[in-house]
Nucleic acid binder design. Structure first.
Lengths: 192, 192
DNA sequence: TTGACACCACTCCATGTGTAGTACTACGTT
DNA sequence: AACGTAGTACTACACATGGAGTGGTGTCAA
């Protein structure tokens, strides 16, 4: 029987994200989720029809949780409008996303898993597209310098910088990473 | 007993790369490698002391195979020295790496696995550092415009673009990807 | 003949799934 | 207040899968 306790379902999905980050996509089993969420064996089985179901819901959830919170947005609105402020913003962004280690790693695992699962690929593609569009729209409304291409290029660059930091942290030092973020903004964001 | 037939060992490592790309890091078992390499069950067991051993060797091998071949390097030497030529080069690079789908995906899987395996992380960190250094050195010797920071920024940007293409190909169209590569070179590579 | 290797067979063990069945709890009814 | 019922939490089990490791036999070449 499919269970309907939404609070418990959410706890299971969050547990799934932790498992994804820690053990990888193939380690994401009903059993592992049960253990992570500290619920009895078999619970996840009761809440999700299939592994695909669980995976897809986890994918959607990670994106929800990666959105910046109200306070962060407010702080951004209060900041300046020049490239200096932009760079500071981006450095903060990299730090914030990288701090959400498990979420970001789970996302990477899901991307790789999407390679094999069309249903998941569909969900992730929509999410990522929406994310790109939202960033461009937000940027345009913010009055910060630079065009849509600059926003996309920055997203590409910073994404890989985060991957680098999370998977092989010793390739670049923290100072180098900060320098790269600053340089990226300086060069990519051209005055219009 | 540890076997020493190097040809067979290489075949097994290459098979491991295919398995990594297709099934993920957790799918990389001795059995799966045996099957992929079409050798009897138990062979990989005889050739590698442990799963860590196999993983580490696979990581090193992927990097060997991702290096451009002689012909590509020669073609690059013959090309022009302006940003236009640079952009064309980068578009070709993205195409070439993305065409090596299994190798690149295997690398991503290994990066994620490196999160959990210090030994593998060490090997990969050295490889990636060497790769960055080699790219910077090659660039400086080539006479192309732009500084070391530009090379690193381009590597970051293009790496994620490739991830995007390989994992969620429908987020950007091919035309958009080409446009992004061109724009990246134009903006990141500043004249000195 | 001896040594290295390919190949095969077998045992042991870990892990996961699905589901039947039991226990608990809340809530509505009388 | 006592009872019944529904939904859920939890447990246990049956079944299946897959992988590791190892001992042994066959084969080939020096």
């Amino acid at each position: 029987m499919v269970r309907r306790n939404e609070q418990r379902r959410a706890a299971l999905v969050d547990a799934a994200i932790e498992v994804l980050a820690r053990e990888g996509a193939r380690g994401l089993t009903f059993r592992a989720v049960d253990t992570e969420a500290a619920v009895p064996v078999g619970t996840a089985s009761n809440y999700f029809a299939s592994r695909d179901d669980l995976l897809t819901q986890a994918g959607a959830r990670v994106y929800e949780r990666l959105q910046p919170d109200e306070a962060t947005i407010a702080r951004q609105r209060a900041a300046g409008r020049d490239r200096e402020a932009y760079a500071a913003l981006m450095r903060e962004l990299v730090g914030r996303v990288a701090a959400f280690r498990t979420g970001y790693l789970a996302l990477l695992e899901l991307r790789l898993e999407a390679t094999r699962r069309p249903e998941l690929r569909k969900v992730l593609t929509e999410r990522v597209r929406a994310d790109v569009d939202a960033n461009v729209a937000y940027h345009e409304a913010s009055g910060l310098p630079g065009d849509a291409t600059a926003v996309k290029l920055l997203m590409l660059t910073l994404n890989w910088l985060i991957v680098e930091q999370l998977t092989l942290p010793d390739v670049f030092t923290e100072a180098e990473r900060d320098h790269l973020v600053t340089a990226a903004v300086e060069r990519i964001v051209t005055a219009e």
